[in-house]
Every structure is written in structure tokens, then in C-alpha cells.
């Protein structure tokens, strides 16, 4: 469960409608501006070979719900009063964290309030370390304007099913835990910003390549930016080719393998053969990467959707560490053994 918890924040926000956070951004596809800040006009740093330099360790440190919570009633931006209140909450929680306080006072859900069984365990891994940045967006999704994922009716059912099975099962086979619990991946779509177990991404550039190391599941993307065409090999992360459009890195990814038959913690991250992912990375100031994704997949969505995600640079010298998930996946045999004992005891009672 620990390892499958990567999508838990979003699941919380979406499923429970319990997201307290929110924020930012102008109209669709525009810059996700910090609520308290204006854009720096510092020129973009460049690598020795002249590409815009995005190198470093990055982490999503705002907590904006992917989908707009119903309580905003369709409103796209927070009011100044709401922003001030959230900023105060962040400050208070930071102080409480430093004071060693646990539970709701540091923004974690109590066991009683947890909408998902098992989440009290996951919440341990969700320490954000420092106050989160507050943005005006009320949802990461900027298109469609209602801030909701435009699921097909079938996908809507699959999403509800995925939420219902999280932390509950069934665990009839090793195929029943989700891809995260199986230590495979949580999918490329949410890779740049999901991950309460850390969510750190290191970007390393070399001539002709931008490589992204996602700490969780040790997911890795080596993105060529040398003008080559797509390959025709289907993969979990598809085939990515990038190019520079001014100071923006544009990455086009196709040739995903169909893994819709597997369990996903969040089904909007699952790859299918019809998935097409378009990503834009733009450094809006020294410490912020504006990451925009447009997700198109008629297998799951009735129309493409776009999310604008502000990602923060963590201090220089931050390392990402080895994520030996499968190597230490004691949860898998224990989960299956437990489920078998449980099933056997029910049979015995009949």
C-alpha cells in the first residue's frame, strides 16, 4: 500500500471532495502565476550548448486539485480572502510540523476522517517539508472550463470502481493490486507532479536529450530533442520526441501500450494505444517550471483536456534517492496471503 499511494492526494481531492487547497492561473493555457508574486523577467539560464537549462530537482509543491472541487461552484480563481486564509493555514501547519505536532494540525487526515481505508498509513509519507505555494487556480485542469476530466461513460464507471477498490481489494490474484502497488508505475501522465511519497523529479540535460528521473518507481524518460521521428515500439511511457519552441520544451508522446486491463489508482494516468500526450515545459522564473499537459485519448475521454501545473525547484544539492519498490515489495505476498486466509475463513464459516 505504501508504494501504491502515489495518487492519494488527487484521489482524496477528487473522490472525497475534501481538498482544502486551491489556486491560481489566468485563462486556459496561460501562465500559472503564484498568487503573491509577479513574473520575474530574468532571462532563462542556458546550458553550455545553448538549450534553455531546466536542470535540477523539481517538485510539485502547490496543492491544487486536479479537478475543480464542487464547492467552488465553477469558479476558476480564488478570492484574495481565500488566498490569504490558505497562506495562513500553510504557515500554521509549517510551524506545527517544526514543533513535532501530528495529525490534522499539520494537514494530515486523522484516521477517523480518512475517506479511504488504509490512508492513515499513507499519510505518513505525505510530509511536504515546507509551506506550499499558493496559486489562484481552483483546479489544475484549465480546459474544459468546468475543470473536470471529460470521462466517457465507461471510463466514469472504471474511475468509480478504481476508487472503491483502493485499499480494499479484491486481491484474488497479484493482478488485482494497482500498478503502483505492483511497483510498476503510476503512469506517465501524472509523473511530473504526483507523488506524496516524494514526488521529486530530477532533470538532466545533455546535447540532444532531456532526461527526467522520477524518484518514485525509478521511472525514467530519456526524451530526444534531436529532431528524430517517433519509433514504432509501444511502451508503457510511449515514445517521446521533444523540440524547443523558443524557450519552451514541447514533448509529443505516442505509441503507448494498452494497459487499460490493469488496475490503476487513477485511471486518467493509464496508457492505451489511442493515448496522445502533449507536454510543454516552460521556466517562468528561476524556481518555477510551468508544466502544461494536453491529454487526448478517445478510449477514456470524450475530448482532450489540459492541465497547467506549477512545479517548484527544490534547493540545489537536493538528491533523489534509489526507489527499490519491487525489491522490497513485502506488501504483495502479505496482501495476497492475508486475502487467502480471509477467503478461507469465510468459506469455513459457511
Amino acid at each position: 500500500m505504501r508504494y501504491g499511494s502515489v495518487a492519494i492526494l488527487l484521489t482524496l481531492a477528487v473522490v472525497a471532495g475534501a481538498a482544502v487547497f486551491a489556486v491560481a492561473s489566468a485563462a486556459r493555457n496561460s501562465t500559472a502565476a503564484p498568487a503573491s508574486d509577479t513574473h520575474s523577467t530574468t532571462p532563462v539560464a542556458r546550458t553550455a550548448w545553448g538549450d534553455p537549462d531546466f536542470q535540477g530537482v523539481w517538485r510539485y509543491e502547490a496543492v491544487i486539485a486536479l479537478e475543480r472541487p464542487a464547492r467552488f461552484g465553477g469558479r476558476e480563481f480564488l478570492t484574495d480572502a481565500e488566498i490569504a486564509q490558505i497562506q495562513q493555514t500553510e504557515k500554521d501547519q509549517e510551524a506545527n510540523r517544526l514543533a513535532g505536532v501530528e495529525g490534522e494540525a499539520v494537514g494530515r487526515q486523522s484516521i477517523a476522517a480518512s475517506p479511504i481505508r488504509g490512508n492513515e498509513y499513507n499519510s505518513f509519507w505525505q510530509d511536504h517539508g515546507r509551506p506550499r505555494k499558493v496559486y489562484k487556480q481552483t483546479s489544475l485542469i484549465t480546459d474544459p472550463r468546468d475543470g473536470r476530466i471529460p470521462y466517457t461513460p465507461d471510463a466514469q464507471k472504471a474511475d468509480a470502481r478504481a476508487a472503491a477498490r483502493y485499499g480494499v481489494g479484491p486481491y484474488e490474484s497479484y493482478l488485482d493490486p494497482d500498478t503502483g502497488e505492483r511497483c510498476l508505475t503510476d503512469g506517465v501522465t501524472g509523473m511530473m507532479w504526483q507523488g506524496p511519497n516524494g514526488g521529486h523529479n530530477q532533470i538532466v540535460q545533455s546535447p540532444g536529450y532531456v532526461t527526467i528521473l522520477h524518484e518514485e518507481y525509478r521511472d525514467r524518460r530519456i526524451i530526444p530533442v534531436d529532431g528524430r521521428p517517433h519509433s514504432n515500439i509501444r511502451q508503457w511511457f510511449g515514445d517521446s520526441v521533444g523540440h524547443w519552441q523558443g524557450d519552451t520544451l514541447v514533448v509529443d508522446t505516442t505509441n503507448f501500450v494498452d494497459k487499460t486491463n490493469y488496475e490503476w489508482a487513477s485511471i486518467w494516468t493509464r496508457p492505451s494505444e489511442t493515448l496522445h500526450l502533449l507536454e510543454r515545459f516552460k521556466r517562468t522564473d528561476a524556481d518555477t517550471l510551468e508544466y502544461t499537459i494536453t491529454v487526448e485519448d478517445p478510449t477514456t475521454f470524450v475530448k482532450p483536456w489540459t492541465a497547467v501545473i506549477p512545479i517548484s525547484k527544490v534547493p540545489d544539492g537536493t538528491q533523489i534517492y534509489e526507489y527499490a519498490c519491487h525489491e522490497g515489495n513485502y506488501a504483495m505476498p502479505n496482501l495476497l496471503s492475508g486475502a487467502r486466509a480471509n477467503a478461507a475463513s469465510k468459506t469455513a464459516g459457511r
Binding site: E172, S173, R340
Partner: peptide
Amino acid sequence: LEYKCVEFVEEAMYGHLGVVDPATGHT
């Protein structure tokens, strides 16, 4: 290229735990 071999070894590592039949509860 990708070589996500975890899913290739699950049967070898966990297959011995069998599959629960939800109708009977038997593994």
C-alpha cells in the same frame, strides 16, 4: 527501450499463492 520486467516475474514470484475463486473462497 523499456524493460519493465517486474510484470514478467510476478507469476514466478507470487504465482504459488494461487488465485482466489470469489464464488467459493477456495484458492
